[in-house]
Every structure is written in structure tokens, then in C-alpha cells.
Design a protein around this nucleic acid. Structure first.
Lengths: 205, 205, 205, 205
DNA sequence: CATGAATGAGCATTCATTCAT
DNA sequence: AATGAATGAATGCTCATTCAT
């Protein structure tokens, strides 16, 4: 699955990368504050530190900014998660570590994750497959870890159960942000993690 | 918690009710199709069967339409759910029935629930407390049913666990819609319900 | 050949007609002064006596204004010409009258004719067939009058010659405007008409 | 009458000449395709084979490109025509040759001539006198040939008639391009030339 | 000389809202 | 109460031109 390519008038890839990073940084702040639709391209340009003309040297449309933002957030979540996971744990401990790490990453990037959740529907049509793919990869990653536990015999779950739990883990990570008005009043992240883990690791069959 | 009052120039409450029902019906269809921001007030008026001038006789701003829509959706979910729950079941069975009913209602109102999820952030500021309150009521309702199980001794959960499971039930209902691109490909509603129930009803302490 | 239909948000045809007349009047003045491309929609709105929003209640795009302008000019040229031609002359005299009338109409509407000549290429794609049709009708009208002369035996021309002379008459009318910087310095309209007529009526075969 | 001078930052006249030739070649193609206003300076630079920065080393404004283009077209028409005319014909034959040659040159350079016709109005103010001068020279050239015929006694025309016929010849050449949608469907260039010549050479007084 | 990134004034168009009828 | 024409601020985007490298 190819990344959607965002058109740029500027040739130098280094510069494109740098400017887009500025842009994403500025845009995330604005999208968090007021949402994609209420943010104007001029505001994005200003917040990014350049003019409206320059903004359009690096994107083709406002929607492209949203795509860049979502892509960057995915990338960072992946990066952070991967960093946490390179430990050489096995079995249940590895899964526990994965869940805790994921929840922690979501906690660290609350606003960003929330933006992605709320604005993904405004992504340009061509970007949708790519984003779904990213979600799928994430789910598959968790799924694999769970499956290892089953293979190792430390967890007893059917294939369907494995798949669904992977989804549940993802969503329970996300809900830490999108229900924060309630959940974060009830629990600390540690409490939340412990309580959810308890259920997620319950075996069956 | 008072409902946010939506201003109307029209005095006759019967008429206001009728017109707003037309409006909500039209708006829901449009919001499902293209989202709140991409829907114009003119389109809402047309779809509702009256003129743009008339639309503004019954609301104060476009956001009010969104509020009315969200409110109506909550109302219908509540209504449908209440209808399903008036059985005289007790204990685990009552909870099972509640979960299954909730999932089923969400399934019946997929598009509507999705709209609420995706557009709630655009609600007028004053409406937020009311909406959160609604969510809270819903959670509290589920919570009460779980608590009954615990009281009856058929489930062994701490207070924190009760609260979190109520949230999980809600979110697992919602995710049937917002992750449908994946989950509904893997499971039928019945399968999904059975699999989730299994975990949700697992006891502990 | 159907007229291109220009979309309007306003229902009342009377009003549409009235507003579009205002619009055409304002736009012609501006197009004469600065050309189509250098005229902004805001200027058109202002010159027409209403707001930019109102302008767009009566057209779909800036190009539509140009189409409306060209159409109105054709219409007026036709109207004026028809009015002049309803005399019951025959043979050469009728042709003479037609040529003189046409030149006179072009003279009266110099600026308008020039605008049409210079901006027609910017017309919306769908309007082109209609405009060519109009030109063709005009040519056919002249052609018919020449043909009558031939039929009556007062002029001796082949079919090709008839067709070409019709074109020549049209173009010689138009060139009174688009070469005015030179021709109108050399001749009065009467002189010009007399001199051109002389050649145009020369018989042959 | 001086040529309008187009400012250049570059000193070497050879280079200026070369670059401007590239520029004109590229621009003509673009102007033919989409007109002056719809062509961007970036496109002109690209089509010319150099950067936008370089483009502005050789011109002062976009309008200058149009002027250069028009000038080049005049130049080439003149050149081609002169080449055809250096025969040592006399009298009617010389005029016939001139007309046929002119029509042929116009036919060979249809697109270019059309561009000049349609975009001349967008020329920078200061360029207008020069362009009119060019037109005048052309007319004068034809005029001289006709006058020779009169002097030689092979044609009998008043001074006014001579002047007007010169204009007619020019315009009838041009109309081969700007009415091509109709005329070129009716006639081949040879037919067209023969038919027009017939009238243009008719004597009188 | 050549380059191309940066600029920002300018433009067409949209749309929530008002108000006279 | 209902209508729909009018409004104009706001917005996404373009493009001629400049200037540092």
C-alpha cells in the first residue's frame, strides 16, 4: 500500500521534509484547538512560520495538510511503540508490556490521537485506503503478539477471540483520550492500564 | 441538568416540535452523507421541506441543528433501549440482555451513532455539558445493572471494575460502528455480541 | 440550437431577467474599459448595483457573465438590424439597405461589438456552439439577401461567391470597429459604407 | 517609431537575443494553446527551458513576453512576405502575387496570427503605438503595390479606394484565421484566394 | 548569470444569517 | 408564519514578482 503522494512545487527533498514538519507541527496545534474545518489555511501558514504562498508550495490542498498530520501522528505512535517493544520479553509479559506501552504512548499523544480520531473522516478520498491500512497494520501487530501467547500456550483463545482482543486493545487505548472527560477523572493511567489488562488477559475456550 | 434551549421565533409548541422533527430527519440524512461542515443550511431547509427563512424561525444557528440532531439520536437510542429492557429479568441474564440490546440498537442506528461520534465536537459550547450528562446517564444505567449483579452475588467486581466495564460496554457498542470497516467484515452482530459478552461477564476480584 | 442555460438560485423569472440586465449593463461597461480578465467579479457586482453575494445568485461563474454579455449584444444587434430591415425593398436596394444598416448598427454599438470580438475566446466551452450558431445565422441572413438579388437577376454570382460575400460583409462591418484606430481616421461611416458597397455589389461570372 | 525597449538585467546582447528567442518560441505555443491570461510565467519559463528567475532576467513583466511574441510574429510575417515579394513582377501580377503570398503566409502561421489578433489588446500600453505602426507599415506596403498598379494604369482607383483595399486585403488575410471555423470548411486556400482576388482587383472610377 | 524558494496581494466563490414582504 | 432575495465576511487557492544564494 503506497502512501498518498502530496504534491510539492519545491524540488529539494530535504527542504520539503523540513517545511512539512513545521507545517504539521503548526497544524496539529491548531487542529487540536479548533478542529480541521475551523482552521484556515492562513492560520496554518502563520503558525508554521511562513506565508500562505509558501504553504501552497508544499501541498496541493488544505486536505493534504490533514493527511500529512495524520500520517505524522501514525508515524510517531508507531515509532514510540516500536521503541518500547524491542525488548526481548516473551509470552504474557510481552503482551503486558505491549498493552502498557500502547496506552502510555496514547497518553503521551492524547491531543494528537484525538485529532486523528475526530478528523480522519475529512481526509481526501485517496488517503482513506492508506489510513485504513495503517490501522490494520497496528491491529495486526497486536494480534501477532497475542497469537504468540496462544502458540506458547500461556493464553487459550480462538482465532476470532484473538482478532477481537486486538481490536479491543486498540480501542481501549484510544478511549483513554476520547472519553477522557470521564475516564481520566476516575482513574490514573496506571489504574486504567491495570484494570483493562486484567480483562484483556483473561483466558478462555 | 437542563437541556440547552434552542431559540425559536414561533410560539406554538406543537408546531415547533413538528418542524424540528422534520428538520432533524432531513439533517440526519445529510450529516450521514456528507458530515456537518459540508452540509449547508440551505440543504437542510430543502431536505426538511421548507425554506431557509423558515429554518431560522426554529433555530438560532446552524449549530443548533446539530444539537437537535444529537439530542434526537440520544433520545431514540434511550427509547429503544428502554423498550428492550423493561423485561423482568434479573442478575446475569438482565446484564446479558442489556448488552445484547445495546449492541443491537447501535447496529440498527449505525449511521446516526456514527454521526454523533464524529460531529459531537462541533456542538455549540453550551451544549457540551448536556451531552456529557447524557453519556453519563447512559453509563450510569449500565453501571447500575452491573452493580445489581454484584449485589446479587452473581458477579464479583470492585467498584472501579464496575465503572470501567460500563464504559467498555458503551465503547464496544460504539466501535461496532466506528470500526465497522474491519469488525463487520470479521463478525456478524451475533458473533460480535457473543465474543464481547464472554469477556465482559468474566468475573474476578 | 439551445441557448446555454445559466443557473440561478432565484426563482422569479422577472427578477432574474431584471437583475441580469443590470449585470450585463454593468459588465459591458467594465469589459469595454478593461477587458474580461482584468475585470473582477466584485467590480461587476458593484457596477451592477448589488453585492457580490447577489451576483452569484444569478450566475454560476464569472464566465457566465461573459456569456450573458455576448448573448445580449447579439440580441441587440439582431434586434436593431431586424428593425431596419422590415422595409419592403427588393433586389439591390434591399441589399444596399442591409449593408448600410449593418454597418450603422455596428457603428452604434462599436464598443460592444469590439468586446465580443476580443473576449469570445474566453467564453465557457459549452457556450461556443451557441455563439458560432449565432454567427452562422447572421451570415445566413445576409447570404439570403444576396441570393435573392441573384435570383432576381440583378446580381450575377456563383454560390461560392455569394457565401464569401456574406462573410465579407460581416467582417467589413466588424472591421469598422477593430481597425477603427486607422479606418475611422480615414473615412466617415458614410464614406466607408459607400466605398465598401461599391465593391461588394460588383457583379461577375 | 522606436521599438518598445524591453528591460533586461543581462548585458551580453547575443545571449539576450538567444534567450528571448527561446522564450518566444515557448510562449507562442502556450498562448496558442490557452491564451495569454491563462498562461503563467512559470509555464513560460519551463516551456522555454529555463527557470522563472532566469525569465525575469530577460523581461520586466509578463506583458513584455506578449510584446516580444507579437513583435516576433510581425517580424516573421514580414520576413516571409518580403521573401515572396522580391520577384521582379510588375502591375497586376505583382499585386496578385502579393495578395496570394500574404494569404499563404497567414495560412502558414494561422495560430500565430490568431494569437496576435486575440491578445494584442493585452499588450502593455507603451507597446501599442509600435504595434499600430507595424500594422500601418504593412498596410502601406500593400497600398504601395496597389498604387503602382494605378500609376501604371492597369487599375483605376481613387486614393480612398486604394487605401481601403489595402485594409481589405489585410483583413481578408486575417479572417482566413479568425473565421476559419466557417471559411476553411467552405474553401481551400486556393479557392479562397481566387475568389477574394476577383473582387479585390475589380477596377472602377 | 542562473536558480528556485518565498512572498502576499488578489481573486472567484461560498454560505450562514437577516429582513422586507 | 413562511418565504426567499440580499448581504458581505470569510476562505481556499493562484501567480506575478523578488532576491538571497
Amino acid at each position: 500500500m503506497m502512501k498518498k503522494s502530496v504534491p510539492s512545487m519545491v524540488k529539494d527533498p530535504q527542504l520539503v521534509k523540513k517545511r512539512r514538519e513545521q507545517m504539521v507541527k503548526g497544524a496539529v496545534r491548531l487542529f487540536i484547538e479548533k478542529g480541521f474545518h475551523r482552521t484556515t489555511t492562513r492560520e496554518i501558514a502563520k503558525e508554521s512560520g511562513f506565508s500562505i504562498g509558501t504553504l501552497y508550495e508544499y501541498i496541493g490542498s488544505k486536505e493534504d495538510v490533514l493527511y500529512l498530520v495524520c500520517d505524522a501522528i501514525y508515524e510517531e505512535v508507531s515509532r514510540k511503540l516500536t521503541k518500547q517493544l524491542d525488548s526481548s520479553l516473551t509470552g504474557i509479559e510481552r503482551l503486558q508490556k505491549a498493552i502498557a506501552s500502547f496506552f502510555q504512548v496514547v497518553d503521551e499523544m492524547q491531543d494528537e490521537v484525538l485529532v486523528m480520531y475526530q478528523e480522519a473522516k475529512s481526509l481526501p478520498k485517496e488517503a482513506l485506503p492508506y489510513v485504513l491500512q495503517k490501522e490494520h497494520e497496528m491491529t495486526a501487530m497486536i494480534e501477532a503478539i497475542i497469537r504468540d501467547c496462544v502458540t506458547e500456550g500461556v493464553l487459550s483463545l480462538s482465532d476470532d477471540q484473538i482478532k477481537l482482543r486486538a481490536h479491543n486493545i486498540l480501542v481501549q487505548g484510544h478511549m483513554w483520550t476520547f472519553r477522557r472527560w470521564s475516564i481520566q477523572k476516575l482513574f490514573t493511567l496506571e489504574q486504567y492500564t491495570a484494570l483493562q489488562m486484567e480483562q484483556l488477559l483473561a483466558s478462555s475456550r
